[in-house]
Design a protein around this nucleic acid. Structure first.
Length: 281
DNA sequence: CAGGTC
DNA sequence: TCTGG
């Protein structure tokens, strides 16, 4: 096991983990979290001025990439503030240290199918049962955890099995998309970006525009992808005086307004609106 | 009612 | 349209 550090000025484990982009993490006492992705695990510990990341030696580069540590968030926050939009200014202040993760593609795809019309505690429960049932048991830093299941294991189960884990009507989508992933992998999205990537992702069963934007942003580094959910739609009405109700139109409104990094700013806005829905701006 | 999709 | 906080 090795430990590397990163200044916490632009890395807040709490904001990064709790903003809703991932569901596979658990607090370990005060200011520490066990974070899981694919078949890997790491431990985050927050100190006064830095975050310590502990993982297997072979996984260091993986987690540096996972936590997006090569990206300059100081510049991104400056860019966000320069728009002069009060609610965005407050959101980046509130969510300071939030970083967009670079997640495993298959895990992200299936996780966000599970996330639709769902709440975070239940999504976490669904995914943890899914991993316990089909994943591989491993141990890291004294903690037992289950890996995200392989596509082989996922694809051999049917809808009824996923329903038994509590996925509800999403069970059909998980079963069908797992099979598609095992058969063709990501061949249909390979080399695609932007709108083409989004369209290709919506070809997987259970993936519509909103979930496709989430997967584009969280697993394909598509920083302009701007997921529009109920919270963003509310933000659009309450903070931007918007009148449109069509979510694709709301999506275009924000992408045109905030440009190529709109998706990153979306995550700050979403986190702020969900945590501080009562705030004046 | 919850970060929708078919 | 599933389901539970």
């Amino acid at each position: 096991m090795i430990t590397f550090t990163f200044p916490n000025e632009y890395f807040s484990p709490k904001a990064t983990l709790e903003c809703g982009q991932t569901f596979r993490f658990s607090p370990c006492g005060e200011s520490a979290w066990l974070v899981l992705c694919a078949d890997k695990a790491c431990l985050l510990k927050e100190y006064a001025a830095e975050v310590h990341v502990s993982c297997e030696e072979a996984d260091e580069q993986y987690f540096r990439g996972y936590f997006d540590l090569e990206t300059d968030y100081a510049a991104l926050l400056k860019e966000a503030e320069a728009f002069g939009v009060p609610v965005l200014f407050e959101a980046v202040r509130f969510g300071r240290g939030l970083r967009i993760l670079n997640q495993d593609k298959a895990e992200c795809l299936l996780s966000f199918i599970v996330s639709q019309q769902n709440n975070i505690p239940r999504i976490k429960g669904n995914l943890s049962r899914l991993c316990a049932a089909l994943g591989e048991k491993k141990r890291f830093a004294g903690y037992d955890y289950y890996t995200f299941p392989s596509l082989e294991r996922l694809a051999e189960r049917d809808e009824d099995f996923y329903r038994s884990l509590g996925l509800g009507y999403r069970a059909r989508y998980v079963a069908a998309s797992s099979k598609k992933l095992l058969e063709e992998g990501f061949s249909s999205v390979e080399g695609k970006t932007g709108a083409e990537l989004k369209r290709a992702l919506t070809a997987y069963p259970g993936i519509g525009n909103k979930v496709a934007d989430c997967i584009s942003l969280f697993a394909f580094r598509e920083t302009a992808a701007f997921p529009v959910d109920t919270w963003i739609a509310r933000l659009y009405r309450e903070n931007f005086g918007g009148a449109e109700t069509d979510r694709e139109k709301i999506n275009r409104f924000f992408v045109e307004k905030f440009g190529p990094n709109a998706g990153i700013f979306q995550q700050y806005l979403f986190y702020y609106k969900r945590e501080r829905g009562d705030a004046a701006v």
